[in-house]
Amino acid sequence: MTVFEEWWLPIKAMVENKEPLTIFQSFYKEIYMNVLQDDRWRMYLDGLWITLKVSFFAILVGTILGTILAVLRLPEVTELRYKGKNPLRRAGDVVLRFLCWFAKFYIDLMRGTPLLLQVLIIYYGVFGQVRVDKLIVGVIACGLNSSAYVAEIVRGGIMSVDRGQTEAGRSLGFSGPATMLWIILPQAAKSALPSLCNEFIALIKETSILSYIALTELTKAGDYIRSRTYSAFTPYIISGILYLLMTLILTKLIGRLERRLRNSER
């Protein structure tokens, strides 16, 4: 018998005998039932781990895809026209034109529909008869959704960079894409960082929607424990604290990155 259980048994007896509890006893009752008993803290940590994994990979997918989408929305790219006669490059021009159109459509679609519906459609529609890891569904759904928001943030960042930077890059002989990659995007990232941080925080919290497809992430872990203990809200508070910890740490890390970038070009 653990020491926690020893403290618990007299309180449990009091509850069963309908004796009033002091504030501390009530508090311990909640902690014991929702955290200590049956190693339930493990459930939160497992849920936290899954939320972390989904968020990390969704942010990765969202950032890479979002950056590509952002580039496809730039006037320099959408107004690009190939005037030569090489048939291969003419075809490439048509493909590019389609991609630009699709990027705009995709961003409107993803921003204009609820994430929950997107999750359900991907889970039940795209992976209809496939036994797929729900984690992967979560990463895909949240990543695709986030990419639309990231795209607009990054686009704003790119447009805030002086046009002269592009000209300087091109005049050295860098191609358009190489100029974007080496010269424009690093500068765009710096100015987009605060908004990106916002988006990442929102994404971490929105992964809680994945509990709808029964992925046992942090919110679902709280739900699970609550279904056992019938505590009105204690599991939610514990999950909430863990979300807060995650977002605070992320904010701190990005803040540090921001400061480093700022210091380098005072």
């Binding site: 449990k12 509850v15 069963e16 009752k29 039932m33 056992r228 203990t229 019938y230 009105a232």
Partner: peptide
């Protein structure tokens, strides 16, 4: 749990743990 004049009737299983709340 939060409203004294509310009861739950919804195919709810009785468990020892729930009886504590």
């Amino acid at each position: 749990m939060t409203k004294k004049d509310t009861i739950g009737v919804s195919g709810i299983s009785i468990t020892e743990e729930r009886k504590l709340n």
